[in-house]
Design a protein around this nucleic acid. Structure first.
Lengths: 156, 156
DNA sequence: ATTATTTAATTAATATGTTAATTATTCACA
DNA sequence: TGTGAATAATTAACATATTAATTAAATAAT
């Protein structure tokens, strides 16, 4: 059946792997009333204290238009706050509230544990080759636009 | 900066790789008024002629509730048609129309070409190790539910 | 200094993802 | 043979993705 070629294409394998891996994490997030994207934002803010909207979009891989809504909902839950830059009124900084920071000690250990189990179940060599493969594909496709609304200066 | 650990986690690397790879394909799809998901459905129907809704969800990795809308819109564009099974009135089969089939010769060569370029730019060994890594991760996470609304009988 | 350009965040419109519930059939079995 | 459980597709409600357009502020060039 020639359909196997399609199912084993790089994009479909990437989607399959995500479908295999993510449900167990989303289950944890949902226990704390968080979505996957909300988790990603908090995960970054727990380490960086104060991050610009642009950086946040870039690091979390959440497209800017989506991130607006994600932060809106995190704000309404009083987990993060926006703060406009004083030096450049266009920029917005985001930081976790006390309530947002308190979530870390409850959620993160659960996630770390599941992630450790996952990694432990994969041969170290296979894991490293997987990462090397990602790096090569990403490097090859380079400055092809990421979805964070950055300009593409390569193919104009 | 400890943020690198997060950015190099398996899920984030999967998302990064998709962000690097997919835009060039979506650009082609959009030229023909297709979304990525519509492409996937057609890609399957061009080879299989007549596929059940359930199989379609499973092969395209489109969650059943999303697939309903995808097929609705493909139907309105007269590219596919639904057909209820006579033997089991619950089941729905989907097939491409003449118009839908005629798209193949125009779209698919463009996609095949870009895909070949992508694959050619990656070392064969790296590519194979990447696929092997996917297989191992997927096998490890096994019957953990895929998002096609199938029942999970492992952790009840 | 003024205007054109660029940048940062946002809005808008539409499509899809996620999770739970629903409806219509079919199946198993008392 | 009728009734409850299981299955297939769908709907519902909400969140996010995609693409293009918009708004506000800062910069560059005149």
């Amino acid at each position: 059946m020639a359909m196997q070629m399609f199912s084993r294409s790089l994009p479909m394998m990437l989607y399959s792997t995500l479908d295999a891996v993510m449900p167990r994490f989303r289950k944890i997030f949902n226990e704390f009333g968080l979505t996957e994207q909300q988790w990603r934002v908090l995960r970054v803010l727990w380490e960086a204290e104060n991050v610009s909207f642009h950086e946040l979009a870039s690091i979390t891989l959440i497209p800017a238009p989506s991130l607006v809504g994600v932060i809106d909902r995190l704000s309404q839950s009083a987990l993060v706050e926006r703060r406009r830059s004083e030096t450049d009124r266009r920029k917005v900084f985001v930081h976790a509230t006390k309530k947002g920071n308190e979530l870390e000690s409850r959620v993160r250990p659960r996630v770390v544990r599941v992630y450790a189990e996952l990694q432990a179940s994969i041969d170290t060599e296979v894991w490293e080759q997987l990462m090397a493969g990602f790096d090569q594909v990403i490097a090859t496709c380079q400055p092809a636009e990421s979805n964070t609304n950055q300009k593409n200066t390569t193919d104009i």
